[in-house]
Design a binder for these strands. Structure first.
Length: 525
DNA sequence: GTAGGGTTAG
């Protein structure tokens, strides 16, 4: 049985469980060495039914006080999501060791009860027990999920004061914790000081940076990882592709694709979906479709990526065809799929079809429309010039319209030049969130669209008086795998002079009007 | 008994 379990493969674990059944049939009793093995097999299979049976057997045969047996029993309930049972077994055991506490706490943490897990940790410390490295890894990762920096520092301090061994697990947990608690620089310090790093350390760093939306930094971490000769795994590639999607870094994305092909990594699941999404977001819809078609298994994510991609590329009909195809082969759409579908209708001017699909969301697919979906509908009506219908829709919404809904209305007003309605909406918006710059910009643009320049200027003055600044938009381009970000009036790039000279030439070429020398276009505000 | 995953959103 021990040999079977050492392979960590499910088939062998199943064989181990069958051996147990065979022993039972032959009236062979298990001892304190065999029970833990059977329980470990159940853990590997997440087999709760047999596990409970073994549990009853353990009690009957008087092994309920054997620590090794009990800990494995707790572990089984832990992976099966039965926190209550973990606790019960723990409470019934008079003698507990550090392992029992660790399994108990992890049981809480893994099943989403982070706070309770941390509380138990302090209860244990109060009991006079000293935590070891493994225990600290569990608690620190719980703290990362909580995003509680104060607690994180306290735990790090504990690691210091007890002079615990700073191994790769502890290092990874700390890096993750600091990244999730908003302390990027501390995380980087810990990362640099780690005596040992593995692929998980790098993945923690890269995906942690990506989650902070620091995609450029994430890509440089990836470059550094390669310089140091660490081989990326599938998780690394998915995280890197995600960065590419957000940056529009097509060249890096293509490089990853080549790497995937060269290393014979299967283009399916997360990797395939991330590739499709990357190509779609980087503007290479043909490549996105090619990857999509090559995938052996497709799920709701694959279809959603393609639908959203086509919708944003203005291929409304094609996006909808993919949607209907998806239904045909029996893949259930989710909320995000509908964001894509409704966006397609909105961009394609398909009011009637959009209306019907919106109704189908709940009627057919039992998906409750969220604020995003209502936003899409307002956008759909607004873009089609049906402002009154859009207003009516907003007034009859079962949920409170948010700023983005009113933003859609304002955007429509600005296109159609509906000044009175825009004024009415702006007043509502200003009441709610006065610091938002977009409201004022749209109002000003509405005035400008009907040539009311003086009013437009007045809005701008109000902004100045209330010290509201327009948050500058940011664009980025990628050249030779290096991503450069640009803001308006930005002169940070080493070749900014050349860049602006080129912008001027291009503008002259395209429109016959001169670009302003500071690089901003001559726009309304 | 220990760490990271992670794709979809105008």
């Amino acid at each position: 049985m021990r040999c079977l379990l050492s392979s960590k493969c499910k088939e062998n674990a199943l064989l181990a469980v069958l051996m147990y059944v065979e022993m039972m049939c032959n009236d062979l009793d298990l001892d304190k060495y065999t029970y833990p093995l059977v329980l470990k097999a159940c853990v590997q299979l997440r087999e709760l039914r047999y596990g409970r049976f073994v549990h009853a057997h353990v009690i009957k045969n008087g092994y309920a006080l054997d620590l090794y047996v009990v800990n494995n029993l707790m572990r089984l309930y832990c992976v099966c999501g039965c926190v209550g049972s973990v606790r019960k077994v723990f409470d019934r055991t008079p003698v507990r060791d550090l392992v029992s506490w660790t399994i108990l706490i992890q049981g809480y943490v893994d099943n989403g009860y982070m706070k309770e897990g941390v509380d138990l940790f302090f209860e244990m410390i109060d009991d006079g027990l000293r935590a070891d490295e493994r225990m600290m890894v569990v608690v620190i990762s719980a703290c990362a999920k909580l995003g509680d920096l104060k607690l994180g520092r306290e735990l790090h301090e504990y690691v210091w004061s007890r002079k615990l061994n700073f191994d790769v697990f502890l290092g990874n947990a700390l890096v993750d914790m600091y990244l999730k608690c908003g302390e990027r620089d501390v995380a980087l310090d810990v990362f640099r000081e780690m005596p040992m790093r593995n692929v998980i350390s790098w993945n923690t760093l890269i995906s942690g940076l990506a989650q902070r939306r620091e995609f450029k930094q994430a890509l440089s971490a990836f470059n550094e990882m390669q310089d140091q000769g660490v081989k990326p795994d599938e998780n690394t590639l998915v995280a890197v592709l995600n960065c590419c999607s957000n940056l529009g870094a097509l060249e890096v994305g293509k490089w990853v694709h080549t790497y995937i092909d060269r290393n014979r990594i299967r283009v399916a699941g997360f990797v395939g979906n991330a590739l499709v999404d990357m190509y779609a977001k980087c503007g290479s819809m043909d490549d996105a479709l090619r990857v999509f078609r090559s995938m052996s298994t497709k799920d709701v994510f694959s279809y959603t990526s393609v639908i959203v991609g086509l919708a944003t590329h203005g291929k409304a009909r094609m996006a909808l065809n993919f949607f209907y195809k998806m239904l045909e082969i029996g893949i259930q759409p989710n909320e995000v799929t509908f964001v894509g579908v409704l966006t397609a209708c909105s961009h394609g001017g398909l009011v009637e079809e959009g209306d019907k699909l919106f109704a189908d969301m709940w009627r057919v697919h039992k998906l409750k429309p969220r604020i995003e979906h209502y936003g899409c509908m307002v956008d759909l009506l607004g873009r089609a010039g049906l402002i009154n219908e859009a207003m009516e829709f907003v007034e009859n919404m079962p949920i409170e319209p948010d700023a983005s809904i009113w933003g859609s209305i304002l955007a429509a007003c600005s296109i159609e030049g509906k000044v009175e309605l825009a004024q009415h909406v702006t007043e509502k918006l200003v009441d709610r969130e006065s610091e938002k710059d977009g409201t004022y910009i749209l109002m000003s643009n509405t005035y400008a669209s009907v040539s009311k320049w003086r009013d437009a200027l007045e809005v701008r003055k109000v902004m100045k008086r209330q010290k509201i600044k327009k948050v500058p938009g940011c664009s980025s381009i990628e050249l030779d795998g290096v991503v450069s970000e640009f803001r308006r009036r930005d002169k940070a790039h080493p070749r900014s002079k050349d860049i602006y000279a080129m912008v001027e030439q291009l503008t002259l070429h395209l429109t016959g009007t001169e670009a302003l020398s500071d690089g901003s276009e001559s726009c309304m505000i």
